[in-house]
């Protein structure tokens, strides 16, 4: 099966400024792709181009096998998009707005009310259906924004900072929703929150100054925990790899490793073994910091202009 989204050699200039520089990637069904990068790195521009809101300078974009440039209507029918500012009509009620969004996305008149009640259920909007969008809190508005992006059951969902402005409980709910959505669809998600990427994304792309600076697969939680290990007196890599409990090992720098625990192994027993062997354990922590380090390393290579 071909990829849900395939981007090839995408460029986009604003005047002399190059906002997107030779970006290529693919997304398969069932993947949640995290898009990271500092402000102005070109994340939103890339997402707007994929959503059809902005024409690419050059490059090829196919959504579910359909070329976005050649058959824009058919391609966009596969797509749901939540921009950075949710495109809400503040003077409509939630129900009216969702009906409108559904009709725009090509849902037939007779099916649209079913779609609206389904999506309201999914996004927790049942109590606010009759209220004006302009009077809702930011959290609810954000959920309405997500609802309009998924009302037509698109194969591809693009969410630009979906948890922006939400409180921690709402963030948790939205993350759960995104994870559920991601089972059958392909989702691209941009965010500034690194832990969010780790919580829900299966893969991460870091953009910097318009180019893709880093691609990395996030290990899924069910494959065993991912840890960072630092030793003051490290043995050879082979010796470490043979340690029971370590399923996979990656050297980050001479004293520092990224370790994947084998299933059923407790962190404490790993620590105990290391200490017993006299390797002088300095750090053993969840690999959350790893992404952060990658991010900082990539995005602070050159001073900001």
């Amino acid at each position: 099966m071909s990829a849900l989204i395939s981007i090839k050699n995408l460029y986009r200039h604003y005047g002399d400024y190059c906002a997107v520089n030779d970006v290529s990637f693919e997304l398969q069904a069932g993947e949640v792709l995290g898009f990271l990068g500092p402000n102005g790195a070109g994340k939103s521009t890339t997402m707007r181009i994929i959503s059809g809101g902005l024409a690419p300078g050059s490059g090829r974009i196919t959504l579910n096998g359909i070329d976005l440039m050649e058959q824009p209507k058919q391609a966009k029918a596969q797509l749901g998009y939540l921009p950075e500012n949710p495109p809400l009509h503040r003077d409509l009620t939630v129900d009216e707005y969702l009906v409108y969004a559904g009709r725009l996305r090509g849902i037939g008149k007779d099916k649209v009310s079913n779609a609206v009640s389904r999506v309201k259920e999914q996004c927790g909007l049942n109590e606010v259906g009759g209220r004006l969008i302009g009077q809702l809190s930011k959290g609810f508005q954000q959920r309405v924004g997500i609802a309009q992006a998924i009302i037509h059951n698109p194969r591809v969902v693009i969410l630009d900072e979906p948890t922006n402005g939400l409180d921690p409980n709402q963030i948790r709910e939205i993350r759960k929703l995104i994870q559920n959505l991601g089972r059958k669809r392909g989702i691209i998600l941009s965010t500034h929150i690194l832990s969010e990427v780790q919580a829900i994304c299966s893969r991460v792309l870091i953009m910097h100054k318009g180019s893709l600076a880093h691609k990395q697969a996030m290990t899924r939680p069910d494959n065993g925990e991912l840890l960072v290990l630092e030793l003051d007196n490290p043995p050879s890599t082979e010796a470490l790899e043979q340690l029971p409990g370590i399923a996979r090992l990656e050297t980050l720098n001479p004293n520092r490793y990224q370790v994947q625990l084998s299933e059923g192994c407790e962190i404490s027993s790993l620590a105990e073994q290391i200490v017993n062997r006299g390797w002088q354990l300095r750090e053993l922590s969840p690999a959350g910091h790893d992404l952060e380090q990658v991010f900082t390393r990539i995005t602070s290579l050159e001073p900001e202009q």
């Binding site: 209507k73 503040r90 996305r105």
Partner: peptide
Amino acid sequence: RSGTIDLLLSSPVS
């Protein structure tokens, strides 16, 4: 101004 044009542009409408 309100950004709702994005809804139209990302929808399958010409």
